[in-house]
Design a protein around this nucleic acid. Sequence first.
DNA 1: AATATTAATCGTAATATTGCAATATAAAGA
DNA 2: TCTTTATATTGCAATATTACGATTAATATT
Lengths: 112, 112
Amino acid sequence: MGLTKSDIFTEDQNNLANIAKVLGHPARIAILQYLIKVNTCIGGDLVNQIGLAQPTISQHLKELKRVGIIQGTIEGTSVCYCINPQKWKNIQTLFETFFTNFTSKIDSDSCC
Amino acid sequence: MGLTKSDIFTEDQNNLANIAKVLGHPARIAILQYLIKVNTCIGGDLVNQIGLAQPTISQHLKELKRVGIIQGTIEGTSVCYCINPQKWKNIQTLFETFFTNFTSKIDSDSCC
DNA sequence: AATATTAATCGTAATATTGCAATATAAAGA
DNA sequence: TCTTTATATTGCAATATTACGATTAATATT
């Protein structure tokens, strides 16, 4: 039905999935990588860099802001975007914890 | 249009986004976490554990197999699933690299 | 061979996502 | 105030995703 049954999963599972989903688009990865490179930029720079229409970029930025991984500050007519360092660290830790759960027990048991 | 313009992004960007997208559903997170816990199990176990219909679980398993993060071995009428340790490590490194790109330069510059 | 078990596939419905043109909004400058 | 600049929102079309019932395929078991 195209509708995720999020009520049958834990909050942590939904949370991690939700963030992974936001990272699950190359335009949003590209935006983050560009922000890493230049530290800060305005929306128009991203439209030029990425090669998608302004409304499309605006939508992707909205998604990234929704999970808090970036922040936008209004500066006159433009908006200055940057990565939110604390949230970035949080999300990094989230993934690290998820991956380490398995990595730490590798070799202890074999596969099928 | 619902169609990602993957041709305008780099292979790395598409690759990371593609994997993140697969992790972007709580059912698939739940499947991976269960596999971490029990090491190996058959498909029916996952259907019972997760609480989604068998075809739905089968579809999620297909996605996970598509990116190689799990593997399934036919054992009689059932299929034994487990995490692919090497691929897991690869993907872990992929995310780690992505996140460290920013973390390593935190404090060097300020935000907006 | 007939039946049971398990998983994959097919078909379908409902919802979500992606992308853009057109428009709206909001602030700066002339 | 009028225009310009920059971004957000709206509305829409196309495609993708999620979920499941029904069916199929393949192997065990009797």
